[in-house]
């Protein structure tokens, strides 16, 4: 009987320990405000900006982020599987959506990781696989030709001749697993109820259109991403700029 009791005690202890998730502990709602910029300015639809010495404006700017993680030495917390950010909605010239992430474990995080686009596991699905209201149920941002969500959209017009007519349309629609990219930003983020519950992330579209060597992207000769699913050269080149174009702050 004594042996039996000891066995039960050990079993119970193991059970309790196994249930104790390393993420247990206080948690809080944590919000991040996402904004699109052009240089130092908030990006506005149809507003003239200067790019490579000529005027451009943006008509549409939107993107998916997925697998958003807060990271420190002890743990990685996935605060969202996927989010949809529309910086140029139908009813306004610009928008900076604030997303509230529920029950984020409190702690001092050393970095945040973003997935630009839709992670391959989710990207293998289609809008009809998701309930109404899900970011991934948006039909118009799925393209059967790529069998992929459209990870990011930047559409607009430019006047490369500086003749007063914006006769060059640019349309950068990036998508497909080959274009998915994750970047980790080593910005300390503290999460604590009542004290540290917010952060901000900006995406500078001027940087998005700038090569790593500081030269402007060749918009005139490459005004659009290819619609050939096998040709992701332009999409990959631009997506490579996200890390530089993104700033995280708290």
């Amino acid at each position: 009987m004594k042996k039996y009791s000891l066995f039960l005690t050990i079993l119970s202890l193991l059970f309790v320990l196994s249930c104790k998730d390393k993420n247990d502990g206080p948690s809080t709602d944590f919000s991040i405000t996402f904004s699109a910029l052009y240089g130092a300015e908030t990006l506005e639809k149809n507003k003239d900006y200067t790019f490579n010495g000529f005027p451009i404006f943006v008509e549409s700017c939107r993107m998916y982020l997925s697998d958003i993680r807060l990271i420190n030495a002890d743990r990685e917390v996935i605060i969202s599987d996927v989010e949809y950010l529309d910086f140029t909605p139908e009813n306004a010239v610009s928008a900076s959506p604030t997303i509230v992430f529920k029950n984020v474990p409190e702690g001092d995080y050393t970095s945040i990781r973003l997935g630009y686009g839709v992670s391959p596991v989710l990207n293998a699905k289609k809008p009809s696989n998701f309930p109404a209201g899900s970011p991934l149920a948006i039909e118009n941002d799925y393209w059967a030709g790529w069998k992929s969500y459209i990870f990011s959209v930047l559409d607009g017009k430019a006047d490369p001749d500086n003749n007063g007519t914006k006769n060059l349309s640019f349309s950068y629609h990036c998508g497909s697993d080959a274009v998915y990219k994750t970047v980790e930003f080593f910005t300390p983020i503290k999460v604590q109820a009542g004290a540290f519950t917010q952060a901000a992330i900006t995406f500078d579209m001027k940087e998005f259109l700038t090569n790593d060597d500081g030269t402007p992207y060749d918009m005139v000769n490459n005004p659009a991403t290819s619609n050939d699913a096998g040709n992701v050269v332009v999409a990959q080149a631009l997506t490579a700029h996200w890390g530089r174009a993104t700033k995280v702050s708290q």
């Binding site: 559409d155 607009g156 490369p160 006769n167 349309s171 000769n221 659009a224």
Partner: peptide, 18 residues
């Protein structure tokens, strides 16, 4: 016209100069 849809003048094969 300045607010025409961006894809209106992208119909066909790209000629390489916009």
């Amino acid at each position: 016209v300045v607010n025409e849809g961006a894809f209106l003048n992208q119909i066909g094969f790209p000629n390489g100069n916009g």
